[in-house]
Design a protein around this nucleic acid. Sequence first.
DNA 1: TAATTTTGTAACCAAAAGGTTGCATATTTT
DNA 2: AAAATATGCAACCTTTTGGTTACAAAATTA
Lengths: 117, 117
Amino acid sequence: MRRDVFQAIADPTRRAIINMIAHQPLNVNTVTENFDVSRTAVYKHIKILTECGLIEIKQQGRERFCEAKLQKLNEVSDWVEQYRQFWKARLDSLDIYLKEAQSKKDAKPTKGKGARR
Amino acid sequence: MRRDVFQAIADPTRRAIINMIAHQPLNVNTVTENFDVSRTAVYKHIKILTECGLIEIKQQGRERFCEAKLQKLNEVSDWVEQYRQFWKARLDSLDIYLKEAQSKKDAKPTKGKGARR
DNA sequence: TAATTTTGTAACCAAAAGGTTGCATATTTT
DNA sequence: AAAATATGCAACCTTTTGGTTACAAAATTA
């Protein structure tokens, strides 16, 4: 059971849930009202979000309020930002690379790498 | 068949592929060499990444070079950043501050200048 | 030309994901 | 106490996902 934040935000319903409770904590039924699927389905999404740390559930009487813990999105942010330099700096890098590869190949042909397995 | 960038980066193997080719385009076999799964499995991941626009494949002879198109990560970046205010605004107590400092320390031990070409 | 290398893809499989209904339990409300 | 409300969860189902093997085709090498 993989429970990381990348997998958690992959589902559009879960992203919508995050959006709902980012502004204010809501109980399970209130969250459910905004979706076409059953309460159980929404509950499962909430559970997944809880398990990866994106939300926290606090009991209040018979209700459970879901509160967003968006610090966890830092994991995603950090992963994405490490690549920003690449999409800013590199334009048309393949052509450059292929030219280099071609001249290397001319000078010193590569040996076969062998088939896997 | 949902093919959005959030779903694409949910899989750890696909994130690893992105990381490999972010620095330079590689052909399919070279990408495969770094994983324990079959070439076909890797190829499927590459196809998914292509279908959502995160990479592009360019033929050169019998090889296909996979080039990262990381601009697409802007979709993820934008989605995450819209919530930054929420998790920044709530850093008001000492223990939250300390917790965040600790996770930063754990998450990115090397914060150097980054790759340079 | 024949063999090798690199890739694309079909057919198939097991496990995970996302959904449902139904029921049990704890808390209000009446 | 009885009814209503809010939730947790088991059991089950279907589709998707991630993987495999096997084979075909194109390009390169010997």
